[in-house]
């Protein structure tokens, strides 16, 4: 059983040593191991290949594999930093590390900026913000007229685009978030502090493996 488990881990594409991942993230080794339990659960929900496919990510987020959502797509794309269409274990842990309560605020601010920079131009453009507000309205019960949406976007831009060039750069974004810290509230997941309680079984598996 132990040998099988050990071989199985080595064969998983993208599997990385928990001690290395722990050294590069706010997680401890046992927390990384617990995250592997969560990763296994998500990555085997549709295709059991040790990788999180977009449908599996959607299923984990929404309990519905077909539910498309602009923001979930953006999160998936940022987690998939190799840009190969799947999330590997190392990518999963490093990306979730940004959401750890102890992760540097600067990392959270930058991550949120990249999230909202839909077209990877290095700026949040007005059209992107407009598109994101429409996407949010689509998924919620909030009904606002086009005029009101335009006003909301204009007002936000007039507050955030301090240079007045019609786009928000990273410096403007940092300044805007410092005045509105609630904007990165969703970049912190309190669950990540209790991950070993939520997903403890890997630790037990490791002990079996070590004694083999």
């Amino acid at each position: 059983m132990g040998c099988f488990h050990s071989k199985h881990l080595r064969q998983i594409p993208g599997y990385e040593d928990p001690t290395i991942l722990a050294s590069e993230t706010p997680f401890t080794v046992s927390e990384v191991e617990a995250l592997y339990e969560l990763f296994k659960k998500i990555s085997s929900s549709i295709i059991d290949d040790g990788l999180i496919h977009k449908e599996e990510f959607q299923l984990a987020l929404f309990r519905n594999r077909n539910r498309r959502n602009l923001f979930a797509d953006r999160i998936f794309d940022l987690f998939d930093y190799k840009r190969n269409g799947v999330i590997e274990f190392g990518e999963f842990v490093r990306s979730l590390g940004v959401f750890h309560p102890n992760a540097p605020t600067a990392d959270k601010v930058t991550f949120a900026f990249r999230l909202y920079d839909l077209r990877h131009t290095g700026y949040i453009e007005r059209e992107e913000l407009y598109e994101m507000v429409l996407a949010l309205l689509n998924e919620s019960d909030l009904a606002l007229s086009d005029d009101v949406v335009e006003m909301i976007v204009d007002k936000t831009f007039s507050d955030a685009d301090t240079k007045g060039d019609g786009r928000i750069d990273l410096d403007e974004w940092k300044e805007f978030v410092s005045k509105n810290p609630s904007l990165i509230k969703n970049m912190t997941l309190p669950y990540l502090k209790d991950i070993t309680l939520a997903f403890p079984s890997f630790v037990l598996n490791t002990e079996v493996e070590d004694s083999d």
Partner: peptide, 26 residues
């Protein structure tokens, strides 16, 4: 807040797609 004074980023940060806590629900 009236809709016009809403912060657009505040609004979009409420998206379910950005709420990763559901990944941890069993």
């Amino acid at each position: 807040a009236t809709p016009v004074t809403m912060n657009a980023f505040e609004l979009i940060s409420k998206s379910q797609g950005l709420n990763l806590s559901s990944l941890f629900e069993k």
